[in-house]
Design a protein around this nucleic acid. Structure first.
Ligand code: MN
Ligand code: MN
Ligand code: ZN
Ligand code: ZN
Lengths: 131, 131
DNA sequence: ATTGAAAATGAAAATCGTTTTCAAATTGGA
DNA sequence: TCCAATTTGAAAACGATTTTCATTTTCAAT
């Protein structure tokens, strides 16, 4: 197979993703893209995002509503990234804590289980909802 | 509002769920139910499962394919405890490790987030599937 | 036992996010 | 330029779940 072709759509999508500070859904990304180019197709966005996931440039995680969220893999690589989800208000908090790496290493060494750190979501209650 | 009504559908669904050793999807549950009663409606199964989740009798978790899986809450209740789920073969391993308590305390102290430990599932790959 | 309001049921339609299809347009090397 | 491989986007298909709504069932009061 040949090299993939450069297109203005892919360039725009990748540039827009790089500007994302937080994780995003396809719906959110598409809305942001539409502000720059109303001709871009949702199908194309799905294809580009799926391609970037396949290349490990984006990491994908599925929330309890079943909708995938994406973030730049380079922003999750350094340490254990996980999501704290409040079961009361639904708020999501991203964390990157060394304690998670300790836990992952424990599972690897003592339980022979390789954690996929990109998919961890921990449920509980946030500060506001406990008050 | 009144009490909810007892129906043979709910009884059958709850009995069938109690017989589940492993977690299940609605699709799987519906297939099993159909062997006992082909008249039961998929909508009724969805309604019953959602009701049981609301009552905390079932716990719900979403996998990377976006499809919710359910399991009896009573089978996951022991505290300080989390499940390791292999995304390749589906195997569930129960753990009870101090490293998890360290992580929970970190989230409580540094992120003001109270972890609900009975709902933690961590995804990854088990030993057999990595070989 | 009869009655009737509340709740539950199930078929069909609607919804929602995502993937597939396909004809037309674009890319980039020969 | 030429042209096959690739990409695009609209429309249709898809799969899981929810909503709608007419009908049936429950159950407590009479
Ligand atoms: Mn998110
Ligand atoms: Mn499963
Ligand atoms: Zn909250
Ligand atoms: Zn352990």
């Amino acid at each position: 197979m040949r090299d993939s072709y450069k297109t203005k759509q892919k360039e725009l999508i990748e540039r827009c993703i790089k500007e994302c500070e937080r994780e995003f859904t396809v719906k959110e990304l598409f809305a942001r893209l539409n502000k720059e180019d109303q001709t871009i197709g949702l199908t194309t966005v799905y294809r580009a995002v799926n391609g970037l996931v396949k290349n490990h440039a984006l990491s994908k995680s599925v929330e309890s509503d079943g909708v995938p969220h994406y973030r730049l893999a380079e922003k999750c690589e350094h340490s254990g990234h996980c999501l704290l989800k409040c079961e009361s208000c639904g708020k999501l908090t991203h964390t990157d804590c060394d304690e998670l790496n300790v836990l992952s290493k424990h599972f690897a060494n003592k339980h022979h289980f390789e954690v996929d750190q990109k998919d961890i979501t921990i449920y509980g209650t946030c500060e506001e909802c406990r008050m």
